[in-house]
Amino acid sequence: MDPVSKFLAAWKIPIGAWGKAFFTFLTDHFNAVFRGFSNGLNFLLDGLVDALLLLPPVLVVALIALLAWYLQRSRALAIGVFIGLLFIINQGLWKQTVETLVLVVAATIASMAIGVPLGIWAAHKPKVYRVMLPVLDLMQTLPTFVYLIPVLTLFGLGNAPGLIVTIIFVIPTAVRLTHLGVTSVPKAIIEAGEAFGATKSQLLWKVELPAALPTIMAGLTQCIMLSLSMVVFAALIGAGGLGTEINRALGSRRIDLGLEAGLAIVVLAIVLDRMTRIGVGDKK
């Protein structure tokens, strides 16, 4: 080794140790808080899954198809959704799909609920956005496995930590697309609002948000897709659903099982994407 490298290696900055100390500190002092939160969340998610599983699967499928029709006014889509979900039942993966669906929907709702206001805030305050940007980059690029570990130590195993890692991964997209939508509202229509005496909040609700809505909705669809892509990772820390099947297939090298669960995820992805995307049906 050359002397410079040797010198540098000798003086290693103990980032890992610091991080570990920080998380140990958290678990030592706030364990009850994190576990309490985690248990509550698990209870909620499991309850929701159980409730959905109480209903006959075909009824749930029909309801989802109905929702698809209501959202997009497209009969073809409703039929497609119906058939796709029947296929999942046919593959014997209904329970896992419901678990995944609940996780994805919960993660998406939470991400939008946090991400949209943050995005609006960032759009109005360029300085805030400049501070936020590196954090968002970090959240999106830090390998998922790296934050699985601390989340696991803080929240334990189960659906709740799965939900939390998914949210961490998905929020940046909600923030970015909301920011994009709000900052690209044409100046002319903002000025029209101002010129007719809009207050700040009127401007937000009557001009900026309606104008940014298509972009925000695109963000919603993106969030759903990204949540789905996290399913396999979430399963590693005990979240149920299709991800568990895939991990099991991987562990026991079962091509058939992997294929079935993989296809179910694809079907779910397509169904959710078409249902939430603007401009699928006859509506403009």
């Binding site: 002319a188 229509i189 029209a192 010129a195 007719f196 009557k206 001009v207």
Partner: peptide, 30 residues
């Protein structure tokens, strides 16, 4: 801005997601 001074813009400045009557009513609504 609401009662004394109104404005007409070169590029019209209409809100595309609103109908004509909703656009005309903007100032009154605000």
């Amino acid at each position: 801005r609401q009662n004394q001074v109104a404005m007409v813009f070169q590029q019209f400045g209409l809100l595309p997601w609103r109908t004509v009557e909703e656009n005309v009513g903007l100032g009154l609504e605000l």
